[in-house]
Amino acid sequence: MSPGKWLPLWLSWMGALVTVSQQAPRLLMVTPSVVPIGAEVGVVLQVEGAPSGLSGTVYFQNENDASVKCSTEVQFKLKPDSFLEKVTLKVTHDHFVQCGLSTQRRDRYIQLVAHSSNLPSSNGIQTLNLRWSARQGYLFIQTDKPIYTPGEMVNFQIFALDHKLRPTFEPVIITVQNPWGLQVRKDQRALCGDGCCDKGSTDNPSHL
């Protein structure tokens, strides 16, 4: 076959390739690499190669057991004029137990799942593996002295931050134990108006 006859065939093959590639939308999912249990997680969705947009649902699931979802399903609809959308998911403590994440000991992974009939996979599903953490935030405790003797007053200050190191308004439960690990005092304190600290004091019983 002469080179001149190959040119129309090559052009038609390239045209078919472009058409197939345009029919397969590409979904990009952006989210924090660690999913904190009990806290809201933002997920940014972006689609390419979908002139008519893309719609579906996103949720979390246990990669080892997809029968029970680890969060509620949230719908998304990426419009043709704006191929970007942010949704919010949350793995509650009930979901955490029901979907089997609480039984994981070593490989603590959770799957972010996007489902749409227009995705190129056979089941219309795209997944992303992420780590999960049961830690919702951080507590920083400051005392006026490093060592106390029995009967002294203990003055303290607590800073409570969420997983993004922002002040949180969650109440703080304070417990005091003796050297043998027995609890001798328990108290629940509300945070200050700015949500970042709680100042207080407690007796240091002489029988500790």
Results as ranks from 00 to 15, higher is better:
Gln136Arg: 15
Tyr138Leu: 13
Ser121Gly: 15
Ile147Gln: 09
Pro146Thr: 06
Trp132Lys: 07
Ser121Pro: 06
Asn129Pro: 00
Gln126Ser: 13
Thr127Glu: 11
Trp132Leu: 07
Trp132Ile: 10
Phe140Asp: 09
Glu152Asp: 01
Thr143Phe: 11
Leu128Met: 11
Gln126Thr: 10
Ser117Ile: 10
Leu130Gln: 14
Arg135Ser: 13
Ser121Ala: 13
Gly137Asn: 01
Ile125Met: 06
Asn129Leu: 03
Asn123Asp: 15
Gln142Asn: 04
Phe140Met: 09
Gln142Lys: 01
Thr143Cys: 05
Ser122His: 01
Gln136Gly: 15
Gln136Asp: 12
Leu128Arg: 07
Ala134His: 07
Ser133Glu: 10
Asn129Cys: 00
Ile125Cys: 03
Asp144Ser: 11
Leu119Tyr: 09
Pro120Met: 00
Gly137Ala: 00
Tyr148Gly: 03
Asn123Cys: 02
Ile125Tyr: 04
Thr143Lys: 06
Ala134Thr: 15
Ile125Thr: 11
Gly137Phe: 00
Leu139Phe: 03
Asn129Val: 00
Ala134Ser: 15
Asn123Arg: 09
Pro120Asn: 02
Arg135Gly: 05
Lys145Gln: 02
Ser117Leu: 12
Leu128Asn: 11
Lys145Gly: 01
Glu152Phe: 00
Ser133Phe: 12
Pro146Arg: 08
Gln142Trp: 00
Leu119Val: 06
Arg131Val: 05
Gln136Asn: 13
Tyr148Thr: 04
Thr143Ser: 03
Tyr148Gln: 02
Ser117Thr: 15
Asn123Glu: 10
Pro120Glu: 03
Gln136Ile: 12
Leu130Ala: 10
Ile125Ala: 08
Ser121Glu: 13
Leu128Gly: 07
Gly124Tyr: 10
Ser121Val: 10
Gly151Phe: 05
Asn118Leu: 06
Leu128Cys: 07
